[in-house]
Design a protein around this nucleic acid. Structure first.
Lengths: 219, 219
DNA sequence: CCTCACCGGAACGGATCATTCCGCTCCGGC
DNA sequence: GCCGGAGCGGAATGATCCGTTCCGGTGAGG
């Protein structure tokens, strides 16, 4: 039916716009921006999601699932562990992957659904496996940790420069700039990789996640 | 005199705090945050600067000057162009350099003083010279542009994770991760480096700069 | 022409932030 | 010990932004 088709079309545009806006600007981005990018009114978003938090959670779940799928696909498609790792990195930075949206799950886990937390853990496991395999047999430097990969994602993702084709070009450029260096272990990495808690704080500062939690003191 | 000393002390704490906060959170950071980090009241900031814009400009001028100095120092201290480039990168990411604050001059030049615009141009020139020299004789990959260096700074700077020593550790870690790759030109960089205008847009989205265009206010 | 479903955008209320105002403390002079 | 003023911290103010809700408009089906 025309009507159902129309609704589906709207759903998709809203979700896509939300993914892009959240990925690029963080979860503090205004709903109106999503509406504008989607070419709909704000009310059309609220007609589909009860509030911003639920929209954000939906987007996070979708993006996290997609990253997991990228990891599994990469492993299956490539027997060479380094190639698989490379493929995964490229896959995560492809258009519409919404990689920018998977950091906040590490960044701000307060009040998330079990589903999302489970997905988050699975995503981390998949990345750890890819890294370990590439280190064992692929020449990936041994002192790289999975958390570093997420830091790279965080930096490689949100150019936000212009339109998507150009953004993809920029992601590709900086991925190409960084990837070869990951195999050069002539100089050991100083310091320790961030743990998930620290990564959380690193992402919180950059692009705000949810408004805030309990406003404690003062009055 | 105790009084003069005290005032100087306050000035310094305010400027340092402003540099850190602006560098990590962008120029949209609230003044109250700066005040808190400096351990002073907001009024003490306004007693020294007529408004937020002038404080920001002061910080930008200081940081930009410092980057220029780092570039000149590096060139003079090292005859090997690659070493000079490396030294410059490390120098810019040292504590208190405020590298995060030099991006917005490219990011949002509206209504800046001639002084700052001149410094900005000089800073760009110095970086271009270092890059060209390192490419000519130092093994730096030939397709790296000066704008890429600023993109790297943008990503290497604002961990914001915890306290400064740890932040310095993180900056060092990711600089060490990236630097070796800059000499590996086996795979040419795809896409084009951003021009200054595009870099401006890239920074605008990430961490807000000034509120918006001309906000008349302040009556 | 009427009804129903769905839209876009204006309206509302709360939160945030730049800036100003005010009462307090500390210091030197008497 | 008491007075005047400089300088301070934080509360008060006014404007803006943003999440959410409300409402009048529009097009399809009957």
């Amino acid at each position: 039916m025309a009507t159902a088709q129309h609704a589906t079309d709207y759903d998709e545009r809203v979700v896509n716009a939300a993914r892009e806006v959240f990925a690029q600007q963080g979860f503090a981005a205004p709903i109106s921006e999503i509406a504008e990018l989607a070419g709909v009114g704000v009310a059309s978003i609220y007609r589909r999601y009860p509030n911003k938090r639920e929209l954000a959670e939906h987007v996070r779940i979708a993006a996290t699932s997609r990253i997991i799928a990228e990891a599994e696909t990469a492993r299956e498609a490539e027997s060479d562990p380094w190639k698989a790792f490379e493929l995964f990195m490229h896959g995560c930075l492809r258009e519409h992957t919404g990689i920018g949206v998977v950091l906040p799950p590490h960044a701000d886990c307060r009040g998330f659904s079990e589903e999302l937390l489970t997905l988050r853990d699975r995503m981390i496991s998949r990345v750890e496996e890819l890294v370990a395999a590439a280190q064992h047999a692929g020449g990936l430097r041994g002192d790289l940790r999975a958390a570093d990969v997420f830091v790279l994602f965080k930096h490689l993702n949100p150019p936000l420069a212009t339109d998507e084709p150009r953004r993809a070009e920029l992601r590709a450029r900086y991925l190409a700039l960084v990837l070869p260096g990951l195999r050069d272990s002539s100089v050991p990495l100083p310091g320790a990789a961030p743990d998930w808690e620290e990564l959380r704080r690193m992402c919180e500062g950059g692009a705000d996640s949810e408004p805030a939690e309990e406003r404690v003191g003062s009055g």
